[in-house]
Design a protein around this nucleic acid. Structure first.
Lengths: 111, 111
DNA sequence: ACAGATGATAACTCTCAGGTTAATTAACTT
DNA sequence: AAGTTAATTAACCTGAGAGTTATCATCTGT
């Protein structure tokens, strides 16, 4: 699976988006990260692993009491994809407008 | 499922991203949309349904020979989410920098 | 009217994501 | 060193996603 797909997949889950939102406030231990959610702790662990795999989060400190940190670079791939395609869309609109105008100018009539 | 999750889910699949990229070039019928892909036609139909459900694509014209069109508004929700959280991250960095500077200024030492 | 092509649906398989409980590991505390 | 707690891993269940083939419906052209 490519990096862009992994990033979009990671962001597709509301629990994972909430974890990111929390980590933007600052680093946190697992217990604090898991506390807002109704689900079991292993479920939260899996979400954190998905975020790690997508490069959105890293684990620091000891193995038994790690601290989780947000990695903003993980947002670059999905952001770039969306912005590039929005730009392509706008350019396409421009070129269509230019084309339509050239028709109008040359032939003096609407289709 | 909320709209943001649907949009990110739709964008998580490379086939669906390729369909969007094609539709940005202009409207297209089903056969043309499906032709670049190795998979069967029903598989492409399902991807198009996912894009419709996410508000990224609409179907126009007759039911039997529809034309598919890209809907740029479908990119708004995921783009907003990413940009908002990137902004929050930057503000958080700023506030941390401000806080750290205030400590340095007042107490004249590094922690 | 009917033959061919186009697009969609039905029904099925298979894999994987997201959840559970129970067991395990690793660090602190005393 | 023994016990406690925090975090993870193991093993399992279930449902949804992505694909298949076969069938059906609807236009189009002659």
């Amino acid at each position: 699976m490519d990096a862009t797909s992994r990033a979009f997949t990671a962001l597709a889950d509301p629990t994972r988006r909430a974890l990111i939102a929390r980590l933007i406030e600052g680093e946190a231990q697992f217990t604090e990260l898991a506390s807002p959610f109704a689900m079991s702790k292993p479920a939260v662990v899996k979400h954190l692993r998905a975020l790690e795999a997508a490069g959105l989060v890293e684990r620091l400190g000891t193995k038994a009491r790690p601290v989780y940190r947000f990695l903003p670079h993980g947002l670059v791939a999905p952001l770039d994809w969306i912005e590039q395609h929005r730009r392509l869309w706008e350019e396409n609109l421009d070129s269509f407008a230019t084309y339509a105008r050239s028709l109008t100018d040359q032939e003096g009539g609407t289709a």
